[in-house]
C-alpha cells in the first residue's frame, strides 16, 4: 500500500422531492457503497437538498461519445411527424 489512495470515485444522483427523478449532482470518493452514500449526504445535502441518494461506481458508467453526437442522434432529426405540432388541425376541433 505504498500508493496513497484517495479512494475510488462514485457518481452521485439525488432525488430532490418525492415523485421526481434522481438527478446527477457530482461525485465523491469512498471505499464502498455505504461510505459513498454517507459522504454524498455530507457533501450534497447539507441544506436538505435531497430525500434519496443513488451512488454508482464512476467506472461502471458507459456514455455516448460527444464526437458522434451528430450522427448518433441523427435518426430522430428527420422525423418531425413524431411531434404533435406536425399535424394541422382545423380551428373548431376540440380536445386534440
Amino acid at each position: 500500500m505504498s500508493n496513497d489512495s484517495q479512494w475510488p470515485v462514485w457518481e452521485v444522483f439525488l432525488q430532490g422531492n418525492p415523485g421526481i427523478p434522481h438527478k446527477h449532482v457530482g461525485n465523491v470518493h469512498a471505499t464502498d457503497a455505504e461510505m459513498a452514500i454517507q459522504n454524498a449526504r455530507d457533501v450534497y445535502t447539507r441544506r436538505s437538498e435531497g430525500i434519496s441518494i443513488w451512488v454508482v461506481p464512476a467506472n461502471a458508467i458507459s456514455a455516448s461519445s460527444p464526437e458522434d453526437q451528430g450522427a448518433f442522434f441523427e435518426p430522430s432529426n428527420d422525423k418531425p411527424y413524431r411531434h404533435p405540432t406536425f399535424y394541422k388541425i382545423p380551428e373548431g376541433v376540440k380536445y386534440l
Binding site: 470515485v9 457530482g26 461525485n27 470518493h29 455530507d42 457533501v43 447539507r46
Partner: peptide, 25 residues
C-alpha cells in the same frame, strides 16, 4: 457549519478538476 461548507466547496472543486483528467492525489 461554515467550516464544513468550506470542506464541501473543496470537494466540489476537486471533483470538477478531476474531470479534466488529473487525480486528486
Amino acid at each position: 457549519a461554515k467550516v464544513q461548507d468550506e470542506a464541501g466547496h473543496g470537494l466540489y472543486l476537486y471533483s470538477a478538476v478531476e474531470t479534466l483528467g488529473v487525480d486528486r492525489t
